[in-house]
Amino acid sequence: MADIVDARAIHKHFGPLHVLKGVDLTVAERELVFVIGPSGSGKSTLLRCLNRLEEPTSGSILVDGIDMLDKRTDINRARQRIGMVFQSFNLYPHMTALGNVALALRKVLKQGRAEAEQRAQAALARVHLADRADHYPGQLSGGQQQRVAIARAIALEPRVMLFDEPTSALDPELVGGVLQAMRELREDGMTMVVVSHEMGFARAAADRVVFMADGMKLEEGPPGQIFGDPQHERTRAFIRQIERH
């Protein structure tokens, strides 16, 4: 099975800070990879390098066979295949839920208004928000906003979805709906890379868990192994700390 994501030896410097120190990450088709690690470990930066929101200092990244770091690559076309969901939702406050989802369909896929809205409506239905299409982000709960953000990404039918701490900004009672949407996405066969602290979800749904610390990938394996029998001292300490909460 071909890898959808194939990132090798990724280095990233922010000025004097060396946040990624040669990280490899491969993700197979239909695989759900969970990235965990203490804050400042570089996991969000790694995710943001995959669709080049951050420019890696060195390394190579192939997504669905496209060389993301080649200057000749049409980055906007490549990004259509990579959906991203942010911690802070980043919905456009001046557009309805439907408008948020339809914008890229119109601007990127050059669809007409009617066609784009029809497809956007279908995407909203997939996250169970068809009845909220006319609401503005300010009129939606945090959980609903995040589900609209998921719909915005999946409407483009991406080959892989990146989740950057999708539930961290949510009140506890709103987390469930977002995780449910992610679970359903997974059941439909979506390839996913998730940076999150939702360990329960990781245990239940992940195919593989990657543990990062200090800009390096220290350990990876099936959730049972990482949570049940971590090899690395840092991993053990991290998981102990998380479990206590």
């Binding site: 906007n76 991203m84 980043n90 456009y92």
Partner: peptide
Amino acid sequence: PKGQWEAARSTGIGFLPTLGAV
């Protein structure tokens, strides 16, 4: 907020359309 740029760019919308529409 920078996140507005990032959200739009991550869906493949180019610089100028992002500026204009978002």
